[in-house]
């Protein structure tokens, strides 16, 4: 079995959506990703993100990748 690799990336999608008064479903519809997949990202369960998904999220939320992610300090 492949080993689960630990990481310290935090996704701030929840805060960004709240600040814009937008729901996960609305964002999912806008960027063409399933609600389930976007929830995975919002709930810190994603292990990777496609550049195309990142671009679409940044376009809709009018933000930069750095606003969406940060690294948790050790």
């Amino acid at each position: 079995m492949p080993v689960e690799e630990p990481h310290r990336i935090i996704c701030h999608l929840d805060e960004l959506l709240a600040a814009r008064g937008m729901t996960v479903t609305a964002l999912a519809d806008a960027i063409g990703v399933t609600n389930v997949n976007l929830s995975v990202l919002k709930n810190q369960r994603a292990k990777a993100i496609r550049f195309s998904t990142l671009t679409a999220i940044c376009d809709v939320l009018q933000c930069q990748p750095g606003d969406l992610f940060s690294t948790q300090p050790l």
Binding site: P2, A46, K47
Partner: peptide, 12 residues
Amino acid sequence: GSRLEHDVDGLV
């Protein structure tokens, strides 16, 4: 294939 599927699992 199992490893690839594991990699894709959690990809958004």
